[in-house]
Nucleic acid binder design. Structure first.
Lengths: 199, 199, 199, 199
DNA sequence: ACTGTCGGGACACCCCGTTATT
DNA sequence: AATAACGGGGTGTCCCGACAGT
């Protein structure tokens, strides 16, 4: 039965996401997932060969989602600095639920860092973003809106660092701050420069 | 015998650090540590009440080290922008061996995020740095070297984000880049601003 | 469809035989058999109620085959000693492929030895052979071709022991020896006696 | 504590032997063994790395035992035919408890036949016996007590076949027969020859 | 006749921490 | 201070069989 199968598949994924976020990958037992999903272990291992596989499926979903989203926003940018600022203002959905997603992501990276085969898969999105931002900055220099002395690649790294760093911090005090605002501020600061310009 | 005891203690810590970095905390068994340290399980539990305790000891060491280092550099700074740039140029030793340390740190944070009692202990250093940088920025505004419109707290978050973000990236492509340089560039960019200033 | 059904049935049996021989009964999963046979699990359980049932079917086939063969040879024997020797010279097809069959047989016996219901079924062929040989030997004594002091039953056991023992050995060094020859030799030795007869 | 350890070790082996014999290797769970031995799983895996290891230990014990026994008897033989007959008369202890031991042995062989590394270890004793008997028969021919036309190696195989075959049969009807007697009969028959000698 | 999906129950292995012993 | 033995309690994985659907 097609329909039943898909539903089961989805329920496993959902249950797993919740549990991984709440207790971590290692601390989450397959039995936990099954119980939370209302599914038997047999069904679980019919749909996924391994607990790891659930993890990966989750990750793929999320990365794909993130990808399409960012790509869309990036292409829509007209003038580069404005584009970046605009982009920064549309990150709510990243921080929303980010503390859980970020943790899953972190766990994935940490696991991947021990398994060379998976490693490439894990860094691929990072490198794609790196290139995307590098292109943007070169474009900005060419179009004259950005200081021509800056290194596009370093700048790209910087932007990504800010993204990652804020994401990480967002789960250090998840409730206290409006990370959306902080991000916008950050990008603006980056754009305008921190030093006071003499009159 | 005092001497023997201390040596055993140290060997356990060393072995644990290596293994945690290589395989992760959960994946590293107490038995593994004992084997790597050439110590029996009894000796292990004579020195540490728990595997977690080893972890914490490791962490404390590192944080203390980081603390004294940063504190020293921060206090020596005369003018704020110059101080930050100078500080950025002395981060080699952070990136050196950072990929392993950072991973340990990340794991610790992730674990701590589930255990409220430990959580405060885990975010404490972060918040201390946050305040330190906030102070610096207010100082910078007061002394007139920084744009008076910037938010000290947001800026502090930004700097920390850059630090964290670059550290994370540094273990995404550990060998390819001179992260020391990237950090210096980053801070400089932050200081000078990205946008081209009209003449 | 009749034709398809039979083919599936046969393919399952073939696949099972191969796998049982290669990996053993317990180590062979139903899934393995299905995969090897190119059949779905549903089909499998449509044709056989149990993995055991496949085993039994395999066994029945083989025993029936062995039965008809031996029976034919035995009845054709005129003079008893000659008949035995003749019989021994037609065992190629038993040793050929025997190592795998013998292992299946052994596994079956071992399993059967724990299940009293199946046990009788398992020893039945053994006992039939025992009686057959016993009859032969009594015939030999009656017809005067055999030493009248020998115990027909013990001798029957001896012949069977030789058969079993050589079969077992044949799979201890499967390639090195021509077991056909060894069997013939064995029976001849048995017939002529080992001790040198004084003139 | 040395003493306690050895006792635990022994109890595990004993329990395992009983259970392996009664239910077979695969059907015997580690938990069963532990329960039967009155030992915790932790203790079990402290003494043996694997269920297989218990199996092997059992086997080694038994083979060593068998070895020393046979070796002793063989060397004590004066005249070859007499020696063999004498040897045959001292096999009670082999058949005693043989049905269980034989099954363990069979299981081991079957397992070994799938694992090339263990295979050599498994056939070694067989080959040693083969050579021992071959030597005996050559000695018999030289000393003139045996027919000089017989092939020593084939004869050795024959004797071993009889041994194996009777052992196997002994577990087909374990209680009904005095296998000790059958063995003696068998060897005697072998020695005297089956065919009636004309006067 | 054949398929995909599911159920539930083991099982081997391992692991962290303790305790008797030296 | 250090050891070997030990205690239990999971864990992921897998497996045999069932059954609704085609």
């Amino acid at each position: 039965m097609q329909h039943r199968s898909e539903e089961t598949h989805a329920r496993i994924l959902n249950a797993a996401e919740t549990l991984f976020a709440k207790k971590g990958f290692d601390a989450t037992g397959v039995a936990d997932i099954c119980a939370a999903a209302g599914v038997s272990k047999g069904a679980f291992y019919h749909h996924f060969p391994t607990k790891q596989a659930v993890f990966q499926a989750l990750l793929d979903n999320w990365l794909a989602q993130l990808d399409t989203h960012l790509q869309a926003n990036l292409e829509a940018a007209a003038d580069v600095p404005a584009g970046l600022v605009a982009m920064a203002s549309r990150t709510e959905h990243i921080f929303e639920g980010a503390s859980s997603r970020a943790m899953i992501l972190l766990e994935f990276w940490m696991q991947a860092s021990r398994q060379p085969e998976i490693w490439k898969l894990a860094v691929a999105p990072y490198q794609r973003y790196l290139e995307v931002f590098e292109d943007i900055f070169t474009r900005g220099i060419v179009e004259g809106s950005l200081n021509r002395e800056l290194e596009p690649r370093s700048s790209a790294r910087l932007v990504i660092a800010i993204g990652m760093g804020l994401l990480l911090q967002s789960f250090f005090d998840p409730s206290g701050t409006n990370w959306q605002d902080v991000t916008e501020d950050g990008i603006r600061i980056l754009m305008n420069g921190l030093v006071k310009r003499e009159p």
